[in-house]
Amino acid sequence: MAEHVILFAGPMGAGKTTAIESLSEIETIRTEATNTDRETADKDTTTVALDYGEITVGDDDKVRLYGVPGQRRFNFMWTILKERAVGLVLLVNNDAADPIRELDEFLEEFGELHEKGGIVVCVTRSDVAPTPYLDKYAERIREVMPGRMIPVFTADARNGDQMRTALMSLIANIEITAMIADNQERAA
């Protein structure tokens, strides 16, 4: 059975837990604790270890969806979960205090996953805060990770269709990039 571990990262309140909930076909495993840090995100609970969901594909493929806690104090979990991951869905909530900086920081932490497979960026809660516009994100990604094509979408983590579009784009990008690399290798 082939495993494909996809990580969901991003700041607290970006929608990682919700996104995995929207995508998973099993009841998700959650590790929520009472949130005492209401300034960062005004919600009742926060993920402190991981979220876990699954999509089984045929008899021999399983897509494992892991959400990491958003807060930097849990970065030991980032290291643990990064190990097996081949792809990253980076969620950034547009209503964060400085969402572009969040993008920066998480790309710095998780950017290596581009080499292990691929990354897609989802800008959530743009209905709550319409700016910054998607272009700003795309621009910043080009600056931070030049020469790589990272899909960037507006997405509502509660919307299964949109999250599937993001996931499929991630996988399409991973497969095509591999195909191109393969062809270049053969050409060389």
Binding site: L134, D135, A138, R142, M149, I150, P151, V152, F153, T154, A155, N159, Q162, T165, A166, M168, S169, A172, N173, E175, I176, T177, I180
Partner: peptide
Amino acid sequence: RLRRWPNFTELNHAVADMRAAAAIGNC
């Protein structure tokens, strides 16, 4: 080549569009 991915979540797209974007996004 694509400068950035189309924002498919708001476009009426088919699955093949994602493969096309992945191809022209990378070369």
